[in-house]
């Protein structure tokens, strides 16, 4: 309990004093995870929609694979990227190992299946009438598809927030492929591990609080955006 209180105090102090190193670490966390999220969205949303909307052979098997990859252990994702980037690996010549780019790659590997799978689920939950209505009103195939995505947007936003939550809190993969190098690839989660290993529990808690605050702020931002765009969203009312 004492450590927790100490951690809270230290956390506020770290933020208040804008400690250069913690600022650097926080910024990198955001950069890496948001880049990974954007890339995952660019890959996952169209892929998930395509999986849900087209008839391809073995669609069920592909979907099942995607759902399985949603639970990919971070360390395993990290290891796969590591083996790809190591100097003896397939992409070794580009010397990407222990760089933020490698961390982004590992996080995309973790986040893209989540975005893809949850997008597919959100689209699959819609009825035929969405397409029919768009089509009978003269929408082109592209316009109708966009309308379907628009109807599924709550689910897609849920997919993106879930993915962001996973990558920003993830430590196994970024530790492995990033290397936790000070001033270079150290992020909030790897800092927590390091501080804990060094016995600086209150600092670890403090960094944890920064991480949670960031997650809270991002979700608040999304929620406000949601409220503004989805004025017409009906919510269940329980009386």
């Amino acid at each position: 309990m004492e450590i927790l209180v100490q951690g809270l105090k230290e956390g506020f102090l770290l933020i208040w004093q804008m400690d250069a190193e913690i600022f650097d670490v926080t910024l990198l966390s955001l950069q890496v995870s948001l880049t990974a999220l954007v890339l995952s969205a660019l890959i996952g949303v169209p892929l998930g929609a395509a999986l849900a909307l087209t008839k391809v052979r073995g669609k069920q098997v592909i979907l099942n694979t995607v759902y399985t990859l949603m639970g990919l252990p971070p360390v395993l994702a990290g290891l796969l990227v590591y083996l790809l980037l190591t100097s003896r690996g397939l992409l070794g010549q580009y010397e990407l190992l222990f760089t933020p780019a490698a961390m982004v790659m590992a996080q995309v590997l973790l986040a893209a299946p989540i975005v893809c799978g949850l997008t597919a689920r959100a689209v699959l939950a819609l009825n035929q009438e969405v397409y029919d209505t768009a089509a009978t009103l003269g929408a082109t195939r592209r316009q109708a598809t966009l309308s379907i995505m628009r109807e599924a947007r709550m689910g897609i936003i849920a997919a993106l927030t879930t993915a962001l939550g996973r990558v920003i809190a993830e430590v196994g993969a970024v530790m492995l492929v990033g290397g936790n190098i000070r001033w270079s690839t150290r992020v909030l989660t790897t800092s927590i591990v390091l501080e804990t290993r060094m016995g600086n529990f209150s600092t670890a808690i403090a960094i944890g609080i920064i991480l949670l605050t960031i997650s809270f702020a991002i979700n608040l931002f999304i929620l406000t955006l949601e409220k503004r765009t989805f004025r017409y969203e009906n919510t269940i009312q329980i009386t």
Binding site: E129, D132, T136, L137, G138, E151
Partner: peptide, 21 residues
């Protein structure tokens, strides 16, 4: 299909409404 559909439209039993106004 697009050319022909754009000369027709439809009202169904429980007309689907897009989210929005």
């Amino acid at each position: 299909l697009l050319r022909l559909r754009r000369q027709m439209s439809m009202v169904t039993q429980t007309s689907f409404m897009f989210q929005g106004s």
